[in-house]
């Protein structure tokens, strides 16, 4: 228990101490965005994901020192997260197009494939049990990492929604790892949870920093890597339901990959500061738009609703983990 606490605490402490520095530096350099859902449209510094990456790196190193048998799993996880973070950093500075980003995040899976830190037999399903997907599964891993990282990247319409929902997913994956006895997944969740909690504290409404693509792509890739390395694929699929819903409906209503700036806005702000779903049939049906369909809400309320939806999916993910135990 002490070792696990040290892993969590090391990542938490490093992100907590580096985040104020990242905020000050990014503000000074003018690296940030406009918080469009506020009446006064404040400037908010970006690339808070750098502090998350720093904390995750330290917690992974701590995990390797305390649990040397997990070295391969931990290193492949860290390499995956850093590659996705690098793609995100390039996008933050250069604005990659809608097809380039998902394509480049496929490469984040290479460390997992090269170091062979996945279950070679494939996925464990409820009822079905352990499948034998030895040929197909390695081809699905790059897709899994690209989908989770890009779905997370698309899931940041309000302050704190991405960081909060990913924190909840990590907690529920950690609990599922305990139910299913997956020690690798448990360790990797602890490595990610500390930095995520700190980031959520700074990113929740009203945000003091945004993640940038460096943060959202790397956090999404981290969750994808945990589900592959830790054998929690089906559980993660259920926990990721809001992100999948958001990405899938957005893509299917537009009919192609898109960047936010290229399509009609799904949400608009009213005079009193409340947010409302637009009625434009050309706008993507995102989760934010669905949440606001019944009427306008203040951003804080909409963000809270996002977290409630994530929590519901999390509980269903736990139920899925329990089903795997009792039916296989």
């Amino acid at each position: 228990m002490l070792n696990e606490t040290l892993i969590f605490a090391s990542g938490f402490a490093v992100t907590l101490s580096s985040m104020p520095f990242v905020i000050r530096t990014m503000r000074k350099k003018g690296i940030g965005g406009i918080d469009v859902h506020k009446k006064d449209k404040p400037f908010v510094p970006e690339m808070g994901g750098i502090a998350v990456l720093a904390g995750t790196a330290v917690s992974v190193v701590t995990a390797i020192l305390l649990f040397p048998e997990s070295t391969n799993a931990a290193l492949s996880f860290l390499a995956c997260v850093f590659i996705a973070g690098l793609v995100g950093a390039v996008d933050d500075f250069k604005n990659l197009n809608a097809k380039a980003k998902p394509f480049l995040t496929l490469f984040a899976s290479l460390p997992i494939l090269i170091m062979h830190t996945y279950n070679p037999r494939g996925v464990v399903f409820p009822f079905i049990g352990q499948t034998r997907m030895t040929i197909v599964y390695p081809f699905l891993i790059p897709l899994a990492i690209a989908v989770t990282s890009n779905a997370t990247n698309m899931m940041d319409p309000f302050n704190g929604t991405m960081s909060g929902s990913c924190t909840l997913i990590t907690i529920f994956l950690l609990l599922s790892a305990v139910i299913l006895g997956r020690s690798s997944a448990l360790l990797l969740c602890l490595c990610l949870l500390g930095p995520l909690l700190v980031f959520f504290y700074y990113n929740k409404y009203p945000s003091k920093i945004f993640s940038g693509d460096v943060g959202s792509l790397s956090i999404g890739a981290a969750l994808g890597a945990i589900s592959v390395i830790g054998g929690l694929e089906v559980v993660a699929l259920v926990a990721f339901a809001p992100q999948i819903m958001n990405a899938f409906y957005g893509l299917s209503s537009i009919g192609r990959l898109y960047e936010r700036r290229d399509v009609s806005r799904p949400v608009m702000m009213l005079e009193d500061g409340r947010l409302m779903a637009t009625k434009d049939p050309k706008a993507p049906i995102t989760l934010a738009r669905m949440i606001l369909a019944r009427g306008p809400l203040y951003e804080r309320e909409a963000a809270l609703l996002f977290l409630v939806v994530s929590a519901i999916s999390g509980f269903l993910a736990l139920a899925t983990a329990y089903l795997i135990v009792v039916t296989t």
């Binding site: 339901a241 019944r294 609703l305 939806v309 999916s313 269903l316």
Partner: peptide
């Protein structure tokens, strides 16, 4: 607020039950 949460609970539960049934 409660009605919005119920909407999502219904959708998520239905989708999850369909997934389990399908498996």
């Amino acid at each position: 607020m409660i009605r919005r949460i119920i909407d999502f609970i219904i959708i998520l539960l239905f989708v999850w039950v369909c997934m389990i049934l399908g498996l």
